[in-house]
């Protein structure tokens, strides 16, 4: 197997996803959990961008001095990139909501520990 930058980029995305899930599962501090979830979203975005990449290709912007066939054969695939733009914005907004909830909860409980705040007493 040839180790190229695309494959390595997939591995980077995969490790970010694993780090994110690990943080959300095992770290007790809520801010750290949310940092982990932000890394998870980043990893998925990187994964999608890497899919659209074409080794040795060009940016998908049509310049006046290009021919159509040259552009069609060499440009990277732009659809994933359009999706990631949306996904980044969604990620930032849900992040803001979560942090807002954490601030309110810290004011109520005086703690940031998930096992203390989000324990079993919700009935």
């Amino acid at each position: 197997m040839v180790i190229d930058s695309q494959l390595m980029s997939f591995f980077t995305a995969g490790s970010l996803i694993v780090i994110g899930i690990f943080a959300a599962l095992f770290l007790d501090n809520l801010i750290k959990k949310i940092i982990g979830l932000a890394f998870l979203a980043d990893g998925v975005n990187l994964f999608i961008i890497t899919m659209g990449y074409k080794a040795g290709g060009i940016v998908y912007i049509f310049m006046p001095n290009m021919t159509i066939s040259n552009f069609a054969q060499n440009a990277s695939y732009p659809l994933p990139f359009a999706l990631v733009l949306t996904s980044i914005v969604i990620g930032a907004s849900t992040l803001a909501v979560m942090l807002g909830l954490v601030i309110v909860l810290n004011k109520r409980h005086g703690s940031l520990s998930a096992s203390k705040i989000l324990g079993d007493k919700g009935e």
Binding site: A24, L25, A114, S115, L118, G119, D120, K121, G122, E123
Partner: peptide
């Protein structure tokens, strides 16, 4: 309702 329990089962 403990969050640690929930996330464990989810993963």
């Amino acid at each position: 309702d403990s969050f640690n329990n929930m996330i464990f089962y989810v993963i």
